[in-house]
Design a protein around this nucleic acid. Structure first.
Lengths: 215, 215
DNA sequence: CTCCATCAGTACCGTACGGTACGGTTCGCA
DNA sequence: TGCGAACCGTACCGTACGGTACTGATGGAG
């Protein structure tokens, strides 16, 4: 179970050995069900059956651990883009709805909420390193998928817009509105999760009413 | 300068003496430019020239202080509703744009961002009391103003919708999108603030395209 | 078998913070 | 002038946490 030479990489390509990945997994679990207060170095060491000294050797300090947790979690998410497919109106709509539901479910996920809370809590400190990291690894990723989808729709003559960023912003806003903030503030997500399908449907309808062509 | 009988109420109707209001003001200032880490009881006492003992007498404990800060800040915001006015298309649009810019500027405000960060940071702890408080005092307030405006527009035959909550969600999403989250994560608001007017304009255009009648 | 690197477990240290207690001071009031 | 309430300033206490140092066990390499 222990690492063999401190050189093996886990499946994710982020310079983390298998053992360290297991430690980060435990740290994420602690963060999810205890908040930042529960994420102490001693607690992580205890939960992961490792020593504090190893934590500091591997991640430098507590901030390094937090950054590694964000990078580790982001490295587990792979967004496959569905380019090169012949699009018609129905297919585009289906892809948009799938994107919208995926977006809602990702944002409502335990780990996502916990990491966003963590980064927001640290935002006013030290120039918001974690915030930028989270934005880079998270939003940029999902934004790319949406961007590719929108571009494909425009190339197929199904969508009309000048600024892709603006169109994406409209789609995001119609889908998410203030639900993300409400969940971050602690509102029970279980009541909201049931409506994800219907919500995604309606948001896509509105988006297509704004940006759709010959539909 | 000192209170005279612990019975005087400040302008806001939230059971807070003038002296206590001044203390809360200092606490908010500390929170704004130092984050939660800077909001220590000793720091508040020092900044406000009061004793820690008084803090605990007035607010119970640290959580009571935080709650009082949120209530105090919310009590300073007064949203006047502009009902009873004869609406035409241009006036409705102007009111919507004004609401949108106000919304963006409120959300981008120093104190608002700091309080939201604070509540989000505590969300996983103790059942998110602060989160619910912030939602109650903040969102509910601005939601009422928007709701009244939308209802007035519908009554004047200028807007068409079945579910007012859904229409408000669309307006909110088109106006704010992910800007609030990005600001909460620490992105520099100065670059975003310049575009508030244009952004509000475009969002209202989109909203009217979705929900407008005979426009 | 021996050497060496890694790591778990623990003890330790300094500090910072929440909360409490106490002495001294101001000020209204009789 | 004396009393009492509120309050400031500060000292104090317990605790929790970040970070470091030490010990002993394991396992691979020569």
């Amino acid at each position: 179970m222990q690492g063999v030479g401190a050189t093996e990489e886990a499946g994710a390509g982020s310079g983390v050995t298998e053992r360290q990945g297991a430690v980060l997994e435990q740290a994420l679990r602690l963060l999810v069900d205890g908040g930042e207060r529960a994420l102490t170095t001693a607690g992580v060491a205890r939960a992961a059956n490792c020593s504090k000294e190893s934590l500091y050797k591997w991640f430098g300090d507590r901030d390094g651990l937090l950054s590694a947790m964000i990078a580790f979690q982001a490295s587990k998410v792979r967004t496959l883009d569905v380019s090169g497919e012949a699009l018609d109106g129905a297919r585009l709509r289906a892809h948009l709805v799938a994107f919208a539901t995926d977006l809602l479910e990702v944002l409502a996920g335990d780990v996502s909420l916990a990491l966003n809370r963590l980064a927001i809590g640290q935002a006013s400190r030290e120039g918001s390193r974690l915030g930028r990291l989270l934005e880079e690894r998270g939003r940029r990723q999902i934004g790319r998928r949406a961007g590719a989808l929108l571009e494909a729709g425009r190339n197929a003559g199904l969508l009309g817009f000048d600024d892709a960023e603006e169109a994406y912003g409209a789609l995001y806003g119609l889908v998410v509105a203030d639900w993300h903030l409400r969940m971050l503030l602690g509102e029970d997500p279980s009541g909201l999760k049931k409506n994800f399908g219907l919500r995604a449907e309606r948001a896509v309808n509105a988006f297509l009413a704004l940006y759709g062509r010959k539909g």
